Structures are given as C-alpha cells and as structure tokens.
Deep mutational scan, measured.
Amino acid sequence: MPVRRGHVAPQNTFLDTIIRKFEGQSRKFIIANARVENCAVIYCNDGFCELCGYSRAEVMQRPCTCDFLHGPRTQRRAAAQIAQALLGAEERKVEIAFYRKDGSCFLCLVDVVPVKNEDGAVIMFILNFEVVMEKDMVGSPAHDTNHRGPPTSWLAPGRAKTFRLKLPALLALTARESSVRSGGAGGAGAPGAVVVDVDLTPAAPSSESLALDEVTAMDNHVAGLGPAEERRALVGPGSPPRSAPGQLPSPRAHSLNPDASGSSCSLARTRSRESCASVRRASSADDIEAMRAGVLPPPPRHASTGAMHPLRSGLLNSTSDSDLVRYRTISKIPQITLNFVDLKGDPFLASPTSDREIIAPKIKERTHNVTEKVTQVLSLGADVLPEYKLQAPRIHRWTILHYSPFKAVWDWLILLLVIYTAVFTPYSAAFLLKETEEGPPATECGYACQPLAVVDLIVDIMFIVDILINFRTTYVNANEEVVSHPGRIAVHYFKGWFLIDMVAAIPFDLLI
C-alpha cells in the first residue's frame, strides 16, 4: 500500500533555474538572501570558489559584500557603492579590487542584480563577478574607477581610450546646418538635424578633445543650467548677453562664444560640459537660429522629431539603469545623424518603425519583477520565466494532490484497515475457520451469522477504491517536481505499489 509523501509542494524551481543557467555559462556568482541580516550568502558556485580561493563552506553565510576579499588596494568608495546597491532595488555595476585567499590582487567587475517577489519586494541578490585585470595590471588604489561605466561593446579594446569628441564640431553647429540641408533625401539625416562627426583615429590627448566618459557625465550638469543662461549661451556672438549692473557675465554663455574659444586653444572642462549641455537642449539648428531671432517656433511634425517616441515608452518600462547606459552608448555611435529632440514631445505622434532597438522591449506582467540581467542570462521568455513566489501546480481535472487534506485522511483510514487485516486475518484463519468446520452448517442466516465476513468484505472494497484513487494521485519525481499527468501517474504506480495493492485487495476469504 503506498505511503508516498512529498510535502515540499507547491515547489518553486526558480532558484534552481537560475543556478542551472548560470552554471551553463561558466559564470562566477553568488546568491544572497536579502531578508536576513547583512544579506548572507546562501549559494556560491564553483567558479566563484576558484576565483577567490575560498571553499564553499568558508563563503556560505558570510555577508555578500565580500568584505573578506578586501585588501589594501580595495577602494572604500567601491565598497560603499556595493553596500548601497544592496540597500536599493536597481541593478548596478561596480569595479573593485579584490584579494584572493593567497593574497593576489585582481580588479573585478561586480554586477549586483536584485530579484523581487510578486509584491515588488527584493528577496534575493545575485552578484556576478568578472575579472577585468590581474594584480600586475591593477593601478594605484588612489585612482577611482567606479565613477565610470563599463566599456562599450562596439569599441575595440585597444581603442576604448582613444575615443574623442571634438569640441569644434559642437561649436560649428550653425555652420554645418547648410551642408545638412543640402544633403536632402540623399543624406542619412532628416531636415533640421545636426550631424556630429566623431574622430576615432588614435591621437595624443589634446586640450581640444573630450573623453567619452566626460560626455556621459554632461547629463548630470544640465539641471544646474538655468533657462535664461541656456538661451544666452545659444544666442551666440551676435547678441551678447546682458548683465545687470554690478553683475558679471555668465561664464556659461561665454563658453560657447566662437570668438572667445578661437582665441585660446584650450577650454576648461567645466565650460566644455556646460556648452555641450546647452546645445543638447535645442532640438535642431533651426531652433538655434530661432533663439537668435527671439522667436522659438513649435517643433515640426516630421520623422526626426518622432524618433524618440518609442524611446520614451522603453525608458518607462525599463527595469534597470543598464538600459540608460545602453541608450547613452548607442546615442554616441560615430558617423550617424543625431536628432536633438526633447523627450517631452507630442504624445499624438505616431511611433516610426526603427531597425535598431535601443531599449529592451516591454516586459510582460509575469516578468515585471525580474531584472534585465536575470532575463538576459536565463534566456527565457515571458511565458517560461515565473515570478519568485509559491505557485500552485497546474493539475488535470479529477486529480488528487498527494499533500491535500483528503489524501491525508484517506491514508490514515487505509492504515487502520491494514492494521485490522494484519490482526484479524490470522485470527480468523486459526480459530474461526476451525469452529466453522466443526459446527453445523448455517446457510440460512447468511452474513448475519458471520459479522467478521462483512467487515472483511468492506475492507476489500476499500482497498479496491484505494487502488483507483492512487491512479489519480500526484507524486514527486526525482527532481522534486509534482507530477499531475494521468499517464505518468499510471506508469509510476504500475512500477511501484500496484502489484502489492492488488494482492492485498483480493478477497481470499470469499474465494475459499
């Protein structure tokens, strides 16, 4: 008679799926529990143990900040960024110097990925580790590398530091407007667009060049630039800015003055950032001319202004700041037409079709709590990747769950009947059967004279019903998954307890 339990259901295979997918890609990662103190490590794979030199037993239950890997060259700011990422709910990448158990130093890129439950609360953290440099290539500990984003994938490793954006290309926007319009339909740009040429040739750093990471940081200074100062900065030398009595002219307006920039070969870094931020506020060169004239017309309804409409929906549905990093990277690809469009465009503009998908598509409701890094690593669709929660398995109709209350009560009843059979069957065979043979035949009273025979008949009927119930009862397979398919249940029961239950259900007393 089957006594099969499996009270692990309803099970959740999400954690096993993450481990299996990460292991298949030869990654070095740990999984931490966000619900406990210090976000203790609950799993670390073999790749991480080989990377740091510690065994799994030495890593388990330690804080996922990996303070046991810190050393003299470990930056405090990087460690603080990892700790801050564990307090938030967004994906974050941090470069930090770690030390192995043998004392060797290596520069590592740590990717902190939160995993949320159905309520939107962070319950786990996945920390992925990628070695960037070994100890002989690690720089000085005073050099802070965590304020910069990861290198873009479309640049060669040897040319990542030679990417320079020439400031004269930004200063000569109005001069290039006529050349853009003359391109017409034969050019790649839309009317009114501004073409910015980027020099990728390796050259020595000069005062006129600005690194790509500095251009990325310009967006942080746009908020500090007032509207009046932006307007004066875009007017140009024809209309000098008016300053109040006793007030000095704005240095932001002076930063885009061609006369002032041409007199000296070098520009201050602050002026460069502010000038680029001011130019980015204009949607095209037409807006710059309109600002000089004193009238700013409404933005025209053409394809170039609607190019950012799908980007707005993608940004609203993005799951991490990696989408913004990807957008900034692609927006700086050289030799393309940049349409400086305000994100607050007309909502009635139709979304044009684009061959290049900048932001990841909208994630469906079932995966809105899973970050983009987890979705990318697992390579699963929205119909396959579940949320991290207890999910009731989908069972067929008329199927009994093996952990249901009805099955528990039924098993206790069958257990009592088995005990009765084990006690009274030998007793009936030894004593009652002998008395029946010696006594007179009682054929007239039937079952009324033999109450134990009636009980034995009921017990046999219950055993037959138990066999039928076992054909529709779920079970737990070797992978700790609840199986509810009727065919698989029948095959599993035939290979197991079916023969024993059938022999126990045969009414031998009635056959004798």
Rank of each mutant, 00 (worst) to 15 (best):
V3E: 14
H7A: 08
T13R: 13
F14T: 07
D16Y: 10
I18D: 01
I19H: 01
G24P: 03
F29V: 02
I30M: 06
A32D: 01
R35M: 11
V36R: 07
V36F: 01
E37H: 14
I42Y: 01
I42R: 01
Y43K: 01
C44M: 01
N45G: 03
E50L: 12
E50D: 07
L51S: 01
L51Q: 01
L51N: 01
L51F: 05
Y54K: 01
S55V: 01
R56Q: 04
A57T: 13
V59L: 10
V59F: 01
V59A: 01
M60I: 15
C64V: 09
F68K: 01
F68W: 10
H70N: 03
R73N: 09
T74Q: 01
R76E: 15
A78P: 05
A80T: 11
Q81C: 06
I82V: 11
I82L: 15
L86E: 01
L87A: 15
A89S: 14
A89P: 08
E90H: 14
E91V: 08
R92T: 15
R92V: 11
K93V: 08
V94E: 05
V94T: 14
A97H: 15
Y99C: 01
Y99A: 01
Y99L: 01
D102W: 01
D102G: 05
S104W: 01
C108D: 01
D111H: 14
V112R: 01
V113E: 10
E118G: 10
E118V: 09
A121K: 14
M124L: 05
I126D: 01
L127M: 11
L127P: 01
N128K: 10
M133L: 13
V138Y: 06
G139R: 14
S140M: 15
S140R: 07
P141V: 14
A142G: 11
D144C: 09
T152A: 05
L155D: 14
G158N: 15
T162W: 14
L165R: 09
P168A: 07
L170S: 14
L170M: 11
L171Q: 15
L173Q: 13
A175Q: 15
A175G: 15
S178W: 03
S178Y: 06
V180M: 07
V180Q: 03
R181H: 06
R181D: 09
G183N: 09
G184D: 14
A185V: 12
G186E: 12
G186D: 10
A188W: 01
G189R: 14
A190W: 13
G192H: 05
A193I: 01
V195W: 01
V195L: 05
V196L: 09
D197S: 01
T201M: 04
P205R: 05
S206C: 15
E208Y: 11
E214C: 09
A223S: 07
A223R: 14
L225C: 09
E230P: 06
P237Y: 11
G238F: 04
P240I: 08
P241M: 12
R242W: 15
A244E: 14
L248S: 11
L256E: 11
L256T: 05
L256M: 05
L256W: 12
D259W: 14
S261W: 05
G262I: 06
S264W: 14
S264Y: 08
S264K: 08
R269I: 14
V279R: 07
R280T: 13
R280D: 07
S283L: 14
S284E: 15
S284P: 09
A285T: 12
A285S: 04
A285M: 15
A293F: 15
A293S: 15
A293P: 14
G294D: 11
P298G: 12
P298Q: 08
R301Q: 07
H302Y: 07
T305Y: 05
G306L: 08
G306M: 06
M308L: 07
M308C: 11
L311M: 14
R312T: 14
L315Y: 14
N317I: 09
N317Y: 12
S322T: 15
I330F: 12
I330R: 12
K332N: 08
I333C: 15
I333K: 11
I336E: 07
L343H: 15
D346E: 14
A350G: 10
T353H: 07
D355V: 14
R356D: 07
R356A: 05
E357Q: 07
I358T: 05
I359C: 07
P361L: 05
P361D: 04
K362G: 06
T367D: 12
H368T: 14
E372Q: 12
K373A: 12
Q376G: 08
A382F: 05
P386E: 04
P386A: 05
